[in-house]
Amino acid sequence: MSIQHFRVALIPFFAAFCLPVFAHPETLVKVKDAEDQLGARVGYIELDLNSGKILESFRPEERFPMMSTFKVLLCGAVLSRVDAGQEQLGRRIHYSQNDLVEYSPVTEKHLTDGMTVRELCSAAITMSDNTAANLLLTTIGGPKELTAFLHNMGDHVTRLDRWEPELNEAIPNDERDTTMPAAMATTLRKLLTGELLTLASRQQLIDWMEADKVAGPLLRSALPAGWFIADKSGAGERGSRGIIAALGPDGKPSRIVVIYTTGSQATMDERNRQIAEIGASLIKHW
């Protein structure tokens, strides 16, 4: 067993022997301040990774656009098919120029040779490549099948209805392509620590998230040296922004954090800054 596999296998073990965790309302004060600064709703939840206990939450059962955070769930569904012998990570998928959609920095470079399922998941999570996500959605049967996968996990809230990039439209009061912070946090925890996926697939999923290259201005910008984070960000229309993450000190994750916002007129930089400040408060009061 590799060191990384050992780390993920012992996530519940280490967490069980940690000192009790206590909620700190100071972080919620910052979440509410972010709402004021952005002029928009902000949803927040913080779960203990081992027990699933909610440590703090704000608007945990209000719907927010998922945006690209759905790509972690998508690759979880792909990995479940791999575990069941219905898919192979090494299978190569070929596609054409007509398949390319807006923001496809990886797939646009491989029109000639195609990409493997493993490479597509890596591109979808680490670079948020939209064509990679659409190609992977095709392998599982489309958005409705991802929703069905989530329902089978016990998540009857999260739903995907459309493809990239239309799913980022974020129309107010439109339930399409949305989740709730509580539902997303619980589902992410199941994917990373539950028995739904094999140990190898859980490790692969967290490795992809740990290698995320496009979430630097968010929670990662607030992390002290030595902290662990595996995350996936999302951005959408109407001032929408979000991030889902597993993080913790001492090089291992111990909490799940989900943050979503929508309806702001603020710039992307300002949305990023507010999420980073929430992260800084979380870490300060850990």
Score class of each variant (00 low, 15 high):
Ser201Cys: 08
Leu136Arg: 00
Gly76Pro: 00
Lys109Leu: 14
Asn130Glu: 00
Val214Ile: 07
Phe149Val: 09
Gly248Pro: 01
Val258Met: 05
Asn50Thr: 14
Lys252Thr: 13
Arg162Gly: 07
Tyr44Leu: 10
Leu47Ser: 06
Pro65Ser: 06
Thr187Pro: 01
Arg176Glu: 07
Leu247Phe: 05
Leu89Asn: 05
Arg118Gly: 14
Gln274Asp: 05
Asp207Pro: 01
Tyr95Ser: 02
His285Glu: 09
Leu111Trp: 11
Ser96Lys: 13
Ala280Ser: 15
Asp207Tyr: 12
Glu210Gln: 14
Ala245Ile: 03
Arg189Val: 10
Ala132Val: 04
Lys32Glu: 12
Phe228Pro: 01
Thr262Met: 10
Gly248Ile: 02
Gln88Asp: 15
Ala280Lys: 15
Asn98Lys: 14
Val72Thr: 09
Ala124Asn: 04
Glu145Pro: 09
Arg220Tyr: 03
Leu135Met: 10
Asn98His: 15
Met268Leu: 12
Lys144His: 14
Pro253Asn: 09
Arg159Met: 07
Gly154His: 08
Glu102Asp: 15
Leu150Asp: 02
Leu223Gln: 04
Ser254Asn: 15
His285Val: 08
Ala266Gln: 12
Ala133His: 04
Glu277Ile: 15
Ala200Ser: 13
Trp163Asp: 08
Gly239Asn: 06
Val117Arg: 02
Gly43Lys: 00
Gly154Val: 03
Val257Met: 06
Leu38Phe: 09
Leu218Trp: 02
Leu79Lys: 03
Ala84Arg: 13
Tyr95Lys: 03
Leu199Trp: 13
Gln265Trp: 12
Leu28Pro: 04
Leu49Gln: 05
Leu205Pro: 01
Leu205Cys: 00
Pro249Thr: 08
Arg189Cys: 14
Asp113Trp: 09
Asp83Glu: 11
Arg159Thr: 10
Glu210Gly: 08
Ile243Pro: 01
Pro172Asn: 10
Val101Gly: 07
Val257Ala: 07
Pro172Gln: 11
Ala235His: 00
Val82Arg: 07
Pro181Gly: 03
Val82Asp: 05
Ser240Val: 03
Glu277His: 09
Val82Thr: 09
Pro249Gly: 06
Thr112Gly: 15
Lys32Met: 13
Gly52Glu: 07
Glu102Gln: 15
Asn272Phe: 04
Ser233Gly: 09
Ala170Trp: 10
Arg41Ala: 09
Ala276Thr: 08
Gln37Pro: 04
Met153Glu: 07
Ala246Val: 13
Gly90Phe: 12
Leu282Met: 13
Asn272Arg: 03
His94Gly: 09
Val106Arg: 07
Leu120Met: 09
Glu166Ala: 13
Asp113Thr: 13
Met127Cys: 09
Cys121Asn: 00
Asn134Gly: 01
Ile243Trp: 05
Asp161His: 06
Ala34Asn: 04
Thr131Ile: 02
Val101Phe: 06
Met268Pro: 08
Gln265Arg: 13
Arg176Thr: 06
Gly236Tyr: 02
Trp163Met: 12
Lys252Phe: 12
Val258Gln: 03
Glu195Thr: 13
Glu87Ser: 06
Gly142Cys: 04
Thr158Arg: 02
Lys232Arg: 05
Val101Gln: 09
Thr187Lys: 04
Arg176Lys: 10
Met127His: 08
Gly39Met: 10
Gly248Leu: 00
Leu79Gly: 02
Pro105Val: 07
Val31Trp: 00
Glu108Asn: 14
Val78Ala: 07
Gly90Ile: 11
Asp174Glu: 08
Glu164Trp: 00
Asp113Phe: 09
Asp212Asn: 07
Ile171Ser: 15
Thr193Tyr: 11
Glu175Asp: 14
Gln265Cys: 13
Leu205Val: 06
Tyr44Gln: 00
Pro25Gly: 08
Gln88Val: 14
Ile259Cys: 08
Ala246Tyr: 12
Leu205Ala: 03
Pro105Gln: 06
Thr112Ile: 15
Arg241Ala: 04
Gln204Trp: 07
Lys213Gly: 08
Glu35Asn: 02
Ala280Cys: 09
Lys71His: 02
Pro172Phe: 10
Glu166Thr: 11
Asp33Ile: 11
Arg91Ile: 05
Val72Glu: 07
Ala211Thr: 09
Ala170Arg: 08
Ala211Glu: 15
Ser68Ala: 00
Glu166Trp: 12
Ala200Val: 14
Pro224Asp: 06
Val31Ser: 02
Trp227Asp: 00
Arg241Tyr: 01
Asp113Val: 10
Leu89Ala: 07
Asn152Gly: 12
Ile140Gln: 06
Gln274Thr: 11
Asp161Ile: 01
Met184Ala: 06
